[in-house]
């Protein structure tokens, strides 16, 4: 059932975001920021992990999950290290997404050339 839930919830988050793209003049960058901030707030309230339990990758693959991940990293580090955890937790927890995108993105810039659209 986790597969169906992943498909439905992941699809639903995307479909709702499409409303923002089509009905507002918000640029994609702004919409991504909104999703990430929402994700961290939902994480802090404790809803986001419930959603991941229900939908698996349907909740963890959308970018809002990145906000939740950052929040959880901050919370864990505060629990372990106290005040400095507010500064260390986010990057520790977000490292996989950021580093993999940076490293693969950089390597891609060495291999690929920009392409014309038609």
């Amino acid at each position: 059932m986790i597969y169906l839930n992943a498909f439905l919830i992941g699809g639903l988050i995307c479909a709702l975001t499409q409303i923002l793209i089509d009905k507002t003049k918000l640029m994609p960058g702004r919409i991504m920021v909104m999703l990430v901030v929402l994700g961290s707030i939902f994480g802090a309230i404790g809803w986001y992990d419930d959603l991941i339990d229900f939908a698996g990758a349907g909740a963890s693959v959308p970018i809002c999950s990145f906000g939740n991940t950052l929040w959880k990293g901050v919370k864990e580090d505060i629990d372990t290290y106290g005040f400095t955890g507010i500064f260390t937790g986010g990057f520790t927890a977000g490292a996989i997404g950021i580093s993999s995108a940076l490293i693969f993105g950089y390597l891609a810039s060495l291999i690929f050339k920009p392409k014309m659209k038609d």
Binding site: I31, M32, I63
Partner: peptide, 25 residues
């Protein structure tokens, strides 16, 4: 796909790699 490719982490990867490729020049 619109938001279907923007919202997943793959969209984030696209938004990092596309300027890297474009601005290599």
């Amino acid at each position: 796909a619109g938001a279907g490719t923007l919202v997943p982490i793959t969209g984030f990867a696209n938004s990092v790699s596309s300027p890297a490729i474009e601005f290599q020049k």
